[in-house]
Design a protein around this nucleic acid. Sequence first.
DNA 1: GCAAAAGTGTTCCGACTACACCCATGC
DNA 2: GCATGGGTGTAGTCGGAACACTTTTGC
Lengths: 256, 256
Amino acid sequence: MTKPADKPANKPGYRPLESLPTTTDLADFKVGVDTVIFSVDTEQNRLLVLLVMRHEKPYSGYWSLPGTLVRVGESLEAAADRALTEKIRVNNLYLEQLFTFGGPDRDPREAEDAYNIRYLSVSYFALVRYEDTALIADGVRGIAWYPLSQVPKLAFDHNQILTYGCKRLRSKLEYSPVAFDVLPETFTLSDVYQLYATVLGEDFSDYSNFRTRLLKLGILEDTKVKTSRGAGRPASLYRFDAEAFQPLKDKPMVFL
Amino acid sequence: MTKPADKPANKPGYRPLESLPTTTDLADFKVGVDTVIFSVDTEQNRLLVLLVMRHEKPYSGYWSLPGTLVRVGESLEAAADRALTEKIRVNNLYLEQLFTFGGPDRDPREAEDAYNIRYLSVSYFALVRYEDTALIADGVRGIAWYPLSQVPKLAFDHNQILTYGCKRLRSKLEYSPVAFDVLPETFTLSDVYQLYATVLGEDFSDYSNFRTRLLKLGILEDTKVKTSRGAGRPASLYRFDAEAFQPLKDKPMVFL
DNA sequence: GCAAAAGTGTTCCGACTACACCCATGC
DNA sequence: GCATGGGTGTAGTCGGAACACTTTTGC
């Protein structure tokens, strides 16, 4: 952060970097973090997002993204973590920063506030394993996984944040192995295909070609164990080989 | 932004979303914007970044990215614009948000401040046309274009921000036509090649192949006007056709 | 046997690579 | 002429798309 001294002290000598605003000219902010948590329902092949029901003004009665305000001494990531651990139990949560919304008038509370406090929101997103999560519902708070297609009008500018989160999720799936963080330890190739199809859309690729490409990467280890799910030929279970993936890091468009 | 009411009022009925912090538990922030402004010196084929010399504590005497603190009623983008228009004259400035740094202890002023004010930085980046810019130097402030390779240790975490900005610039060049915002109205194909080579590195592609690919996109109009620069065959001047580019939008990896 | 799902192979085609080669100018 | 930089063409190769075909299971 670069800027003039925050105290408009009468320093002698050179002129300060800019015509100095007085301290009160600077906006005072509360900083919030909002999280876009995605999950894939592998049963029904639906992309889910975690929403919580608001019970306070403003937007009381609206669904919103899980979030909270940053406390004294707390990092942004820690605040995001705290907002989530109160609502969901999940291991291995890797949050990634999305975007920061900070314009005036994005939060109705700004108007009501005599001290002209601004509200800024830093958003984060993550993809978590559906089976590993447990919602902490206590009958009072509303916490739910919403299929992406059925998300209602959300509080604040959360629909906008969500839209942006989707874009990032899709592109992330294409160049990073997030999918394997979300799949179980061992999985079939069509599990992977289903996951990609669910997030990217049914027609993102032919199954056989996807399969061939994926195997050619050499990052999947065939456990030789077969699994049979109803009719059809049993499938091999594969395991993700993180080490083999290392050299592929930062290479663009690895998958798809 | 989602969070409990900011006033810990004794509301009857339901329990609020979280165990409420009192108002004073929430961190108070000043929000800064920092800008990473790139430019290409087409004469010497160097990638430049705009730096300003700090004259205040902290980091007095250090170079830093141009930035400022957000004022009352001012949007983040407006603050970034203001920080820049005081230092540089440039048309058509499209700022793009980079990243938000907001951890505690990233700014030494936090420690000195009795009120425990936190400093958060939202960074933006842009690529501008070198010839269209004029630095506003008044002999007191230091403002300069630094070749990327010669950037010194900067104030705050600005080196980190700059590094991230470089990454984004390079990837942006690959999938968006920013290059044509920076080139003059008409330009030769080797002007384009030089620009890409300067930003991405000399060995990013063969010249003839780059040329062929670029023309095949059908977004360049040949003005048939020839230009001769010293020895060698005169080159055709081309013009970027923004309309023809429209359908290519959001397609990945258009260039290179 | 038949349907269903997994897995393999093949053909076609377009794209990228790496050059070699031709063209138009200044000197 | 010849050096210099602009511009064109081509042969080889790699990889993706589409789709046919084989394999192994449940019923």
